[in-house]
Design a binder for these strands. Structure first.
Lengths: 145, 145
DNA sequence: CAGAATCCAGAATGATACTG
DNA sequence: CAGTATCATTCTGGATTCTG
């Protein structure tokens, strides 16, 4: 197995060597756990739910009110997905009216640390990203128009 | 602005306090840089491209051959998206036949570090995630069948 | 070689109405 | 309160064909 998709071993400083040492296979990319996780939390709402549940546990409608713009359906689906992956715990209280509380599992809490690393990167560099996007949009205008 | 979506300040150890200190607004989640980055690199191929380009620069067809299963169209679209965001640099050599080399920009290289943190988490915990998925699949079978 | 253009299938997301 | 069911729409990814 190539090391390419098994762990991103280190922040390689990109030697930019013009030679081609290895053929770079990357066969089993479908099972790559990195892509797998990225696709799970890369959807529209999962990160927001994880962050909110990282602060404290919440009831369903608290999340619904707290995340402006999410539909009931998508909140349910997001929570189910995170629950199936073992990141979120769902606890039902058989009261009337019924009450359900969501919280992060221990596994889910371990995700907060690497997530905060990526969040820090995003906060630090989203200005540069947006400038780059605007610059390329302008370039496209000048190309096409 | 709420602090909820601006940086995931720290790996909060989830006090699980039953009180409700703050109302948790999360208004401007559409502009949340964390979700923004996650959605960019959470697609099917971006992470693989970033990892490969983190090792060294590549020509178009090297990437095409190196990433088994990717279509020409998706490789082009993925590279364009990363280029627009300022993470990938595209350099054209006007030879015949033409040659194009892709490499990470300095901004793109800074992403390797937080990405490797998340990758480490994924590698460490994807076993637990898959067990959880299988457990819930089995539970669904017993529920529905 | 490195793409662009076109067409298409399926998944993700959303609005709305209904239920225990 | 906490969902489920249904339908419509948008987005994503892919196969194929064509070009400088």
């Amino acid at each position: 197995m190539s090391a390419a998709h098994t762990g991103v071993p280190a922040p390689v400083p990109a030697p930019l060597d013009t030679r081609m040492p290895t053929p770079v296979p990357v066969e089993e990319h479908e099972a790559c756990p990195v892509s797998d996780v990225l696709r799970r939390i890369g959807d529209k709402w999962s990160v927001l739910v994880i962050v909110l549940l990282g602060q404290r546990r919440h009831r369903f409608n608290e999340l619904h009110r707290g995340i402006e713009g999410i539909s009931q359906r998508m909140l349910t689906r997001t929570l189910r997905g995170l629950e199936v992956d073992g990141l979120v715990h769902r606890e039902v209280f058989p009261t009337v009216p019924p009450s359900v509380e969501y919280s992060l599992t221990p596994l889910g809490r371990t995700l907060l640390e690497p997530l905060s690393a990526l969040a820090g990167w995003a906060v630090e560099h989203h200005g540069a990203i947006e400038r780059s996007r605007r610059a390329h949009a302008g370039a496209a205008d000048r190309d096409g128009g």
